[in-house]
Design a protein around this nucleic acid. Structure first.
Lengths: 205, 205
DNA sequence: GCCATTACGCTACGACTCGTAGCGAAAGCT
DNA sequence: AGCTTTCGCTACGAGTCGTAGCGTAATGGC
């Protein structure tokens, strides 16, 4: 959220928070209708009922705008306690799949990831705005499973951190690939099969 | 390969195969230097030493061109027999990671996948040109493991097909996510950890 | 060897998007 | 009030898009 991390001046006319929300919503709407490459900032400004210059005063370009617009979508992810590790994983994977099934999330996320291969600053922004915040779900799930006795306590903290990263890559990657590349729904049946494989690998040894 | 599936007329000047190769190579070069959004077809034509009109006569647009340019990169994937299922998996995952580490592969693939969320024809083209051909690796690996006695023979063919799709999504998805989103190398240590989890899930039960 | 056919290189074109600059009006704070 | 910053609007040169038209080059059929 570039515009929110800015320290607002004590004086002068404050920026309209409503304009921020309208612009991000308009960006998602335009992503659905036009896709990434045909999305123009002028069009977004028109949809949001805002002057094009206002948009350029807040975001440096298309990349940064779409990152913020997409990041909001992933904030709603939660990890409700369903009683077992398997049920917890299935629940959060289904939530994640539901978000990715929305065209604006899929289209925007993949596009900025593609651009980030040539732009280190953008990659860092994606990580801090979208990816890292969601690792809390993996940590939370492991902690619960350990309290239930489903997973052993970690002895090596470094190894534990690596495992969290690995799990996150496997879960997020598999759902993304299933949904976007294989282009088939990550429905309950698929999630059950996926969870089974993942769980066996986690609980053994 | 749009231009190759065309039935060449018996008469008239044939299309230059060298131009095809030069255009696809120039596309990959431009992807490395400029990324997806700043890549222009005019620039690609100049790099390839070809008129812009020639490029438009062979490909409908940027999407189709990049799909073909990226597809060539994945043709080199092989599954050498390393003696065990674990070693086979580690070998092919490392190969896949090596390809994805190249900016032109990562950038191009993610960009067209992003565009495909709004374009069914493009999605189908990606699947037939890039994704489906590589599933042979999963089939080949399973067959070898069954001959070695590492995996049981499949009883239900439909279930077996679903498993192949699942494995493919997990492997490809995890490597992509690790490389592009988490932005860390899928090196030997990571691949070992990943293979361990995957194998336990496959061999148990 | 000539001819029909197709591909090629080149130029030019209108339409569109980009990102920026300049202006007067609006909205907040002290 | 007075000061400061934002906002909407217009206009601008630069760059890209995809296409059309033309003359030339390279084939195969006769």
């Amino acid at each position: 959220m570039q515009s929110r991390t800015r320290v607002p001046r004590a004086t002068g006319r404050p920026r309209s928070a409503a304009a921020d929300a309208a612009i991000l919503a308009a960006t998602r709407e335009a992503l659905v209708e036009l896709g990434w490459s045909k999305l123009t900032l002028g069009d977004v400004a028109t949809r949001a009922g805002v002057a094009k210059t206002t948009l350029y005063r807040r975001w440096a370009g298309k990349n940064e705008l779409v990152v913020d617009a997409v990041a909001e979508l992933f904030d709603e992810l939660r990890l409700p306690d369903r009683g077992s590790l398997a049920a917890d994983i299935e629940g959060v994977v289904l939530q994640f799949a539901a978000i990715l099934a929305r065209p604006e999330a899929a289209c925007g996320l993949m596009a900025v990831v593609a651009e980030s291969t040539r732009d280190d600053a953008l990659r860092a922004r994606i990580r801090t705005s979208i990816v890292e915040p969601q690792k809390r779900l993996v940590l939370q799930g492991r902690e619960r499973a350990q309290q239930r006795g489903e997973l052993p306590a970690e002895s090596d903290p470094a190894e534990a951190a690596r495992t969290v990263d690995l799990i996150f890559d496997v879960v997020a990657g598999a759902v993304v690939h299933r949904t976007l590349v294989s282009a088939e729904a990550a429905d309950e049946e698929w999630v059950r099969g996926f969870t089974r494989i993942l769980l066996l690998g986690l609980t053994s040894t």
